[in-house]
């Protein structure tokens, strides 16, 4: 059970690494798809903007590889957004693994932009293995200014100006808009569900 942690040289991969270490979950840093050869699941973290992240994934061969991937994939924060078709943040094509567009979030009266802080998980698809042990209304930590509108593949939502996709799944590909590595016990549970076997 080794997780490949895709490393595109963006900041703060340390938080994800330490979260995996706290779970005693073995991982390798995978700069290229070849680095992930011996792994049975893939974690795609991400900070920064969609355009920069896609360019780096493309240079390292990961765009092509992720489009053909059959192992379980979990995208985190920007990594979740990259799973969709198209980003209005950078006006660029994304991985296209889940139908939908990533748009700018309008918080309305709910608070400042970007969406920063602890918000609740609702409308959980409790049949999803990633949500094992997670309850409706638990808090997780979000930091994002763009979002995926809720569609048929959402398995958890939050609310900020309107419904926001908090977790998504299509087949072997899943994602969290929030940072499980910074989301205390709830985040650790979801990460553990992923690295310890949920497909």
């Amino acid at each position: 059970m080794t997780t490949a942690l895709i490393d595109t040289s963006t900041a703060n991969i340390a938080s994800v690494r330490y979260a995996l270490e706290r779970l005693d979950a073995p991982y390798v840093l995978a700069c290229t798809p070849a680095d992930a050869a011996g792994c049975d699941r893939i974690l795609l973290p991400g900070v920064g903007t969609a355009g920069v992240a896609m360019a780096r994934l493309d240079q390292s061969g990961w765009v092509q590889a992720l489009r053909l991937e059959v192992r379980p994939v979990l995208g985190v924060c920007l990594g979740m957004q990259l799973l969709f078709d198209y980003s209005l943040e950078s006006e660029c094509a994304l991985l296209g693994l889940i139908p939908g567009r990533v748009e700018q979030l309008d918080p309305g009266e709910d608070g400042p932009w970007p969406h920063t802080g602890w918000n609740t998980l609702t409308d959980l698809d409790l049949s999803d293995p990633l949500l094992r042990g997670v309850n409706e209304g638990e808090y997780v930590y979000f930091v994002h200014g763009f979002y995926a509108p809720v569609g048929r593949y959402a398995i958890a939502r939050t609310r900020y100006g309107g419904p926001v996709t908090a977790m998504v799944r299509r087949g072997h590909v899943a994602g969290c808009q929030f940072h499980p590595e910074c989301s205390a016990g709830t985040g650790a549970q979801i990460l553990a569900n992923f690295v310890k076997g949920a497909s």
């Binding site: 910074c182 989301s183 205390a184 016990g185």
Partner: peptide, 11 residues
């Protein structure tokens, strides 16, 4: 900073 990051699971 690294030592703190290893022990806590909040931002």
């Amino acid at each position: 900073v690294d030592r703190v990051a290893r022990v806590i699971d909040i931002p």
